[in-house]
Design a protein around this nucleic acid. Structure first.
Lengths: 151, 151
DNA sequence: TATTGTTATACTCTATAACTATA
DNA sequence: TATAGTTATAGAGTATAACAATA
């Protein structure tokens, strides 16, 4: 049973392309990160904590663009794996400060390598220049401010 | 409250870029198609039926790459809007033949225009050549056969 | 026995509402 | 009164399992 390519009526649609590119990358990412006992969202949390240093849960959620209620389970999971630690802020006892453990930093390094290899495989159908252009183009449309009803 | 751009640690990740590009397009798509009482998946079904002529539910699901159980609700919704018709195949009475109604064809034309305009807006941050390159690159990675455990 | 459509069910991801504690 | 974290809950979107009709 060989692979049926999607018809042109679908591959001409940006929605179809982005959805399936995303789904496929998610699957490849899960496969690449599974040996490191992480998924892509967890790895992103570790990377953000590494880049910013310790953050409150709310601040980390803000950087990641996710809801604070979503953050709770994410931190629960990472804390359960001893990759991050929670502690109460002394300055404001409402806040949980989250920071990487030594193990978390080590895991981050390993997993980032696996992710980089996975991305290289994912982009392998493209020439290097085209792969770079893809990333630049995606960045441009993602960072572009949404145009609201006002203008 | 002005827009906080995501940090480089995230925009350097293909997973983050594809996810957010996809989420944003989905939102813009919903907004563009709402006046036509359709969502992106429904429009894709109409487009596939238009391109292939009538199809059984299973065949249509196969073209769209979705499960036959997912197809049921999708056809229910479109039939409820009188955009498609179901009828039993005479040749094989297990099969539901699904085809566009005249209203479905008209709706498809309107909605496809709205979709094209939405895509143009979405890609507006890019030069024309870059937009075309993005679509070509996405098509290449989506159509590329997944490399399984065998290689 | 296998296939098609259907229904019931469950799972993932995410957000909203409401609660607790702190400010 | 407002904010941070938490919990319970709900809504998309999708898939798996089981069933009826048909082949």
């Amino acid at each position: 049973m060989t692979h049926d390519a999607p018809p042109e009526v679908l591959t001409a649609r940006l929605g179809y392309l982005l959805k399936h590119a995303y789904l496929r990358l998610t699957k490849e990412s899960a496969r690449a990160l599974a040996p490191h006992d992480l998924d892509g969202r967890e790895l992103a949390v570790l990377a953000v904590l590494d880049a910013h240093g310790e953050l409150s849960q709310l601040a980390a959620a803000g950087v990641l663009g996710i809801d604070r209620t979503t953050m709770v389970a994410l931190v629960d999971a990472l804390e359960g794996k001893a990759l991050v630690e929670r502690r109460r802020s002394q300055a404001d006892r409402r806040k949980n400060i989250v920071q990487l453990t030594a193990g978390g930093r080590a895991r981050l390094r390993e997993a980032e390598q696996a992710r980089a290899e996975m991305e290289r495989r994912f982009l392998a159908p493209l020439a290097d220049a085209d792969a770079e252009a893809l990333v630049r183009a995606l960045r441009a449309v993602v960072v572009a401010p949404a145009e609201g009803p006002v203008g």
